[in-house]
Nucleic acid binder design. Sequence first.
DNA 1: ATCTGTGCAAAATGTTTGCAATACA
DNA 2: TGTATTGCAAACATTTTGCACAGAT
Lengths: 164, 164
Amino acid sequence: MKSDESLKRIQNMGLRVTVPRRQILNEIARLKGHFSAEDVLLSLRARGKRASRVTIYRLLPSLLEVGILREVIYSEGHAHYERVEAKPHHEHLICESCGRVVEFQCPDIEDSLNGVCAEHGFAPRAHIVEITGLCRDCARSLPDAEGRMAMASSGELQSTGDMQ
Amino acid sequence: MKSDESLKRIQNMGLRVTVPRRQILNEIARLKGHFSAEDVLLSLRARGKRASRVTIYRLLPSLLEVGILREVIYSEGHAHYERVEAKPHHEHLICESCGRVVEFQCPDIEDSLNGVCAEHGFAPRAHIVEITGLCRDCARSLPDAEGRMAMASSGELQSTGDMQ
DNA sequence: ATCTGTGCAAAATGTTTGCAATACA
DNA sequence: TGTATTGCAAACATTTTGCACAGAT
């Protein structure tokens, strides 16, 4: 999405178009993957722009609200975002050892979530599906990954085959 | 689980059994639902015990590691835990308006996650599935909350942050 | 006796808020 | 003009760390 279009969107929600906001939107428009508020700030500074950290923190929720961003990756103690239009919705496999994040899509899961919401009369706004554990490489290289293979859930959520 | 058994488990992983640890484990053993580090502290203090906040923060990760606790509820800015044996694994519907948390189980989702891990050669340790939105009551009482109800019953659960 | 665990105080994160100055509409 | 927005500094909430002392094995 061009940042012009984003500007129009935030304008439509009654927000003013300002220089810092334009800069932030521009910066976000060029970010590819996941990013934090701090990432946006550093990225801005790297190109000599000086919108402040506070302004970023204040703008991000609005960008969530108008659907320009979505929140992702909840298991790391701080907020991560990504542009909604940058890629189709997906979930994450997060390696606890090397930090690698693998994305996946799974229509079946979406369907199941669907059903659950319908059952409970729940109006969903967003969902998180994250699996944490060891990626193939780390599972191999860590000599004793015993204990880690035990699922926290009742299900037997174990890998059987080779990765990717 | 009796805290004796928990003590044995942490002993087996090379940790010493101490008074503060015994108190913390005792307190956790009587907690029913979700709780934070702070909850444990307050709960301890309420019964005149004085294990420190720091000790709690240092013990919790070990309890995760030995499978006495699991982490739950990631979308609130601080860590929440629950006893693994307290209830079977389940996922959460979280109302953004009233804060109510509804638990649900869904074998189909577990199966799907299973499949995904197998495909990627990923060794899962835990997973999070959370749906945030509006519970039935809040969806009704909030005057048209930005079209959130749109798919509540139609069965079209949309992607994260993608509801507009 | 040894070495781990404790707890205080302080630091480190990540995020939010009060307020005076500024800039948009 | 009038109000929303900015940015600084300071507050905040949660979690982590340095260090000297206490306690478990």
